[in-house]
């Protein structure tokens, strides 16, 4: 564990908190992509299958995995029941079939090992790298976003971005660490996908302005 990974995981927790807080206080999930949320649940379920098989790693690891799966499922539950009337499917129209299909192909072509567990792990890594696209697409369609929603997207993106210095740190100082090529490549791709958003967030929202596309 190093500071970057800790901050990354913390950022992920904060993003979950912001999203739930936004929905609970405004009694609405408007501006939030249901499709992205479904993709994230798929990501966590497929990645954390090892909760049942792998030898126990740490309480931290197990606890975080359970929190990520549970909060993701809870978000989907809220969006599909209580706050369903506030969700507008007409602007949440990204074709997620391509993201699911592409991730599956990548996982089948380059798995760490030819086992079901390793293929599902790789699938989840690739899928996570693109799971934000329906959300970003929705922001692009409406041309703007609520500030709280942009905080959510930023915190979620920062999680993977912070993993990059973590990998560099591990490569330099942690002799036992085995860098996972798939995670590194997908993590870089994911951060690149966010770069446009990060730029606008940094130049507008951080200066107190509304998130609006130029």
């Amino acid at each position: 564990m190093n500071i970057f990974r800790m901050l990354g995981d913390l950022s992920h927790l904060i993003s979950i908190f912001i999203l739930l807080h936004k929905m609970q206080t405004s009694k609405s999930c408007s501006g939030v992509s249901f499709k992205s949320q479904v993709l994230y649940l798929v990501v966590y379920v497929f990645r954390y299958l090892d909760l049942f098989t792998n030898p126990f790693m740490s309480y931290y690891n197990t606890l975080m995995k359970i929190v990520f799966i549970a909060s993701s499922a809870y978000t989907i539950y809220l969006m599909s029941t209580v706050f369903k009337p506030t969700h507008d499917p007409a602007i949440d129209t990204f074709k997620i079939e391509y993201l699911l299909g592409g991730s599956l192909v990548m996982a089948l072509l380059f798995p760490p090992k030819w086992t079901f567990m390793e293929i599902s792990w790789a699938f989840s890594i690739w899928l996570e790298s693109v799971a934000i696209l329906p959300q970003l697409f929705m922001v692009q369609r409406t041309g703007e976003a609520e500030t709280i929603t942009t905080h959510y997207i930023f915190a979620l993106g920062a999680y993977r971005a912070l993993y990059i210095p973590n990998w560099i740190w591990r490569y330099m100082f942690d002799k036992k660490a085995k860098l996972e090529t798939i995670a590194v490549v997908a993590g870089l791709a994911q951060t690149l996908l966010y770069s446009d958003f990060f730029y606008i967030y940094w130049t507008k929202v951080m200066k107190g302005k509304k998130f609006q596309l130029p």
């Binding site: 990974r5 995981d9 992920h12 990645r47 090892d50 792998n54 030898p55 790693m57 690891n61 975080m64 995995k65 990520f68 760490p112 090992k113 086992t115 567990m117 390793e118 792990w121 993993y163 973590n166 085995k178 996972e180 995670a183």
Partner: peptide, 10 residues
Amino acid sequence: VEEQPAHDEL
């Protein structure tokens, strides 16, 4: 026994 990769990150 061949060692399985352990994905210790989240």
